[in-house]
C-alpha cells in the first residue's frame, strides 16, 4: 500500500466514509462525517498509520484533504513513494 492509499485508509477508518468517496474534496466542518469529533479520530488514525505526532497547533491547521498531506510532508512523510 503506497502512502496515498494509507492516507485514504486513515480517512475511511477515522471518519467512517466509504472507500470510493471523493477524498480530494473533503473539508473539516463541510464534509458531513468530518466534524470536530471525527477530526480527533482521524488524527489518531493518521498518527498511527504514519508513526508521527501531530501537535495541537497543527491539528487546528489541518482542515482539508490536501492540508493533511502538506502537514504529513512537514513531519517527514514522503508521498513520492
Amino acid at each position: 500500500m503506497n502512502k496515498i492509499e494509507l492516507y485514504k485508509t486513515a480517512f475511511i477508518n477515522g471518519l467512517d466514509v466509504v472507500a470510493d468517496a471523493t477524498f480530494e474534496e473533503m473539508q473539516l466542518g463541510v464534509t458531513k462525517e468530518w466534524d470536530s469529533i471525527g477530526h480527533m479520530t482521524l488524527i489518531a488514525e493518521l498518527e498511527d498509520a504514519f508513526d508521527v505526532y501531530i501537535d495541537s497547533e497543527w491539528i487546528t491547521e489541518f482542515n482539508t484533504y490536501q492540508s493533511g498531506i502538506d502537514l504529513l510532508k512537514r513531519l517527514g512523510v514522503d508521498f513520492g513513494q
Binding site: 477508518n13 477515522g14 469529533i37 480527533m40 479520530t41 488514525e45
Partner: peptide, 13 residues
C-alpha cells in the same frame, strides 16, 4: 487533545 491521543472511536472521544 492529549486525552484524545490514540483514541480512534467516537465513544472514547
Amino acid at each position: 487533545i492529549p486525552l484524545c491521543k490514540g483514541k480512534k472511536k467516537r465513544h472514547q472521544i
